[in-house]
């Protein structure tokens, strides 16, 4: 049930961001971009929440052979570590995606700062924040 709400939130965020990007105001476009960037961040975090059949992280202290966790690659047999059997219960959330999301947030932050300054300079040059006025280049 939680997964449904999570997916719904991500979908609504994407929709809102897309709607705002299609507006005619530079500032609204930038707000839309940052909403989409947060939707992507939530999506990345959600990719680390499992319901029990996939574990990408080695848990160091369970290296006994009785568990079904394989730590070594055997490429000839097509085994790529770490592999967990379907029956194994995986309770923990993947910590790697949270590290990824931190990086993504920082990058999104810096780009948003840059594009806001750019929007201010565009306002200085053009005297408006209307996207339709930005057509001196005819690209």
């Amino acid at each position: 049930m939680n997964n449904v709400f999570l997916s719904l939130t991500i979908a609504i965020l994407f929709g809102l961001g897309t709607f705002l990007i299609l507006r005619k105001d530079v500032i609204k476009v930038i707000i839309g971009l940052s909403i989409i960037s947060h939707a992507v961040n939530v999506l990345i975090v959600s990719s680390g929440v499992f319901n029990g059949d996939n574990a990408p992280i080695i848990n160091g202290h369970v290296s006994d052979s009785s568990s079904n966790i394989i730590f070594n690659d055997v490429l000839d047999n097509g085994v790529l570590a770490p592999v967990v059997a379907n029956t194994e219960e995986v309770a923990y959330v993947d910590p790697l995606v949270q590290a990824l999301v931190l990086t993504a947030i920082v990058i999104g932050f810096s780009i948003t700062a840059f594009i806001l300054i750019l929007a201010y300079r565009i306002y200085e040059e053009y005297g408006t924040t209307d996207i339709n006025e930005l057509k001196r280049l005819w690209g």
Binding site: L33, I36, S37, I115, L118, E125, L134, L137
Partner: peptide, 21 residues
């Protein structure tokens, strides 16, 4: 002109932000 530079950079940045998302 600097307004051309700003407009071009804005297009470049918005499109590339979307592609990086």
């Amino acid at each position: 002109k600097s307004d051309h530079k700003m407009e071009a950079t804005f297009k470049y940045l918005v499109l590339n932000m979307i592609s990086s998302f």
